[in-house]
Amino acid sequence: MEDRPQIGYSKRVMDHFMNPRNVGEVEDADGVGLVGNPVCGDLMQVTIKVEDDVITDIKFKTFGCGSAIATASMVTELAMGKHLDEALTITRQDVANELEGLPPVKMHCSNLAADALHEAIEDYQKKKKKEAEVAA
């Protein structure tokens, strides 16, 4: 069964496409990640709320194909409630695995969700560093 080629999207991808979790924008976001490019057909935005280095709220918005929407939805589920250090370890492969796989052609172009999450976290950390410097 392992080498059976995947036809179309997995059930998990379709579930997240049909019922995406955490759609929207977090109010007064602590960190914003925006990756991709509408020219390429994929643009992903992740906004996070952070308390004591834990992601307390996370939301996404996506312009893109089915897997772009599903991966963004999945990454918000994976990162919700996680410590930032832990959230930073979430990889593209983790997202794809949790979705029971993505078609090979989609692994690169439409699997930007982990990158958007990391960018949101780094944005938060940069802001925090600046605040600390200003305070000092």
Binding site: Y9, M14, F17, M18, G41, C65, A68, I69, C109
Partner: peptide
């Protein structure tokens, strides 16, 4: 592609697209 999937999944309507993603 997401238009195509949405129409198929929720409405059982089949269309085509010239999007790169397909």
């Amino acid at each position: 592609e997401s238009i195509l999937l949405n129409l198929d999944t929720f409405f059982d309507i089949q269309v085509a697209t010239g999007s790169a993603c397909t």
